[in-house]
């Protein structure tokens, strides 16, 4: 027992020192510098729009998906995380339901639906869809908004990010930014 007590003192002191160094000083230093150099990103990448009357309004985070359900908006991925096995009956039923809904939204479109529009993401708030899932919606958006397909494509391409260095990750279209642009807000 006396031996353990001899070790207890440095153990507690070591723990306290590490708590101050790694918990307080390190966290404070990163926060301070982050707030100084990257205030937008550090605070959630909030999209703030200056309206015509000069007031500023927040429209959400560029990195967090919002739910869109009407035909005049670009539709993103289903919200929420399911954790279902992709080959289960429950998953098939959900996919069928989403497929039917997309067909009611745009009855003229008979093309095959891109996978990401009927499968939920890992975060449940994936802000992006694939470029082919965006292209699938171009004709509908153009019709609903009364603009040409190329106008819609120009907006989509403006808010598409490529692979990092052309190698890492996948190209992606930010749904919220496209919809803000369609509304003339961005």
């Amino acid at each position: 027992m006396t031996k353990s007590m001899k070790i207890l003192r440095p153990a507690i002191m070591c723990f306290l020192v590490m708590t101050i160094v790694c918990g307080v000083i390190y966290t404070a230093a990163v926060t301070g510098i982050a707030q100084l150099i990257f205030p937008g990103q550090a605070n959630g990448s909030i999209i703030t729009v200056t309206l015509k009357d000069g007031t500023q309004k927040d429209y959400g985070s560029a990195l967090i998906a919002q739910e869109f359900t009407s035909a005049e908006y670009m539709i993103g991925r289903p919200m929420g995380t399911t954790n279902l096995s992709p080959v289960s009956e429950e998953q098939k039923a959900l996919v069928d339901e989403r497929t039917d809904w997309l067909h009611t939204l745009d009855p003229d479109n008979t093309a095959d639906i891109p996978m990401v529009l009927v499968t939920a993401s890992g975060s449940g708030v994936d802000p992006n869809i694939t470029p082919d899932a965006a292209e699938y919606q171009v004709a509908r958006l153009a019709r609903e908004r009364g603009v040409s397909g190329d106008d819609v494509r120009a907006i989509i391409s403006k808010y598409t990010t490529d692979r990092f260095l052309g190698i890492f990750g996948e190209p992606a279209v930010n749904v919220l930014k496209v919809n803000l642009a369609l509304d003339g807000l961005l």
């Binding site: 982050a34 707030q35 550090a42 959630g44 909030i46 429209y59 959400g60 985070s61 739910e67 009407s70």
Partner: peptide
């Protein structure tokens, strides 16, 4: 710091409430 530059958050500010574009319903960031 590189992660923050990409959009990973680093702040002591409270959660942010925003109104969503289509539904105007509240969303917590």
């Amino acid at each position: 710091l590189v992660l923050v530059s990409q959009g990973v958050v680093q702040t002591f500010a409270p959660y942010r409430e925003v109104a969503m574009l289509e539904s105007r319903a509240a969303q917590t960031i």
